[in-house]
Design a protein around this nucleic acid. Structure first.
Lengths: 133, 133
DNA sequence: CCTTGACCTTCCAGTAGCTGGAAGCCTTAC
DNA sequence: GTAAGGCTTCCAGCTACTGGAAGGTCAAGG
């Protein structure tokens, strides 16, 4: 099938699908006119990638997962390890964002939000040394 | 003061400080030999930027906040508006990450993680159409 | 047979926010 | 004088695409 159909079936943009070919994630056959020709299996891989991406895996992670997916001699332990480290990453990011949210909420609540120039948010940003990063 | 001192005082890397000059966020004076010469006020701005960055503001947001910070006729409402929309963004990202975390946790818990190839994580990735993105 | 429109192709540039490295001055200490 | 460390600029690269230009291909209609 042509690239547009593959794109629709995998719910990835045409540009993205072409990009995945370029970086050798999913390389379809080519027709004599140069057009990409996606097989059912190619589309299946594209869907797999989209799903993994939605779960926060990087393209490098995706590449690993895909090769494990296709390796019938894999051990489930190797997949579990990748997934667990991804959970750790996500939890770190969650904690960081939550701390940002808390700080910002306190600041917003202390700001009158009127026409006057006095602003506790800016004062705070100006006063304090950075606590993160 | 020279760029290294400014970098240390603001807790930003030398490269970053130079970059902020390049994108006209904080443009220090120059000595006759071409060296950047940071004033106390410049360093104060660098610190402000670092703090704002830690709270999740993009450099574009930072640019706005900095100009509001320096505008003595600003209204606190305009700052509050930016901060509130940033909180919204952060909350969206939090929800997304939390959903990833939950899904991944379920998958990891259902995976034996041994030497056998059977892996519910990969099966799940292969089976399902994407639900997000 | 020609044209039109919708495909497809490649290639180049740009996004955010830096980071690393090369080549080459400048300054300071020994 | 020279060596080490600063400083400068510029160029490339990172992630994961996206937009757009220039041009080839294909099917339908007149």
């Amino acid at each position: 099938m042509n690239i547009q159909q593959a794109s629709e079936q995998s719910d990835l943009s045409v540009k993205t699908v072409r990009y995945y070919d370029e970086i050798k994630l999913v390389e379809p056959a080519r027709l004599s006119n140069g057009y990409r020709d996606y097989s059912e299996n190619d589309v299946h891989k594209l869907k797999f990638l989209n799903r993994a991406k939605c779960l926060g895996f990087s393209l490098d992670d995706c590449r690993q997962l895909l090769s494990l997916y296709e390796d019938k001699n894999r051990s489930s332990a190797s997949v579990k390890k990748i997934a667990k480290s991804k959970i750790k990453e996500i939890e770190l990011k969650l904690a960081e964002l939550d701390s940002m949210r808390k700080t910002l909420t306190v600041l917003v609540n202390s700001c009158s939000g009127d026409d006057r120039p006095e602003c506790p948010i800016l004062e705070e940003l100006g006063k304090h040394p950075p606590k993160q990063n």
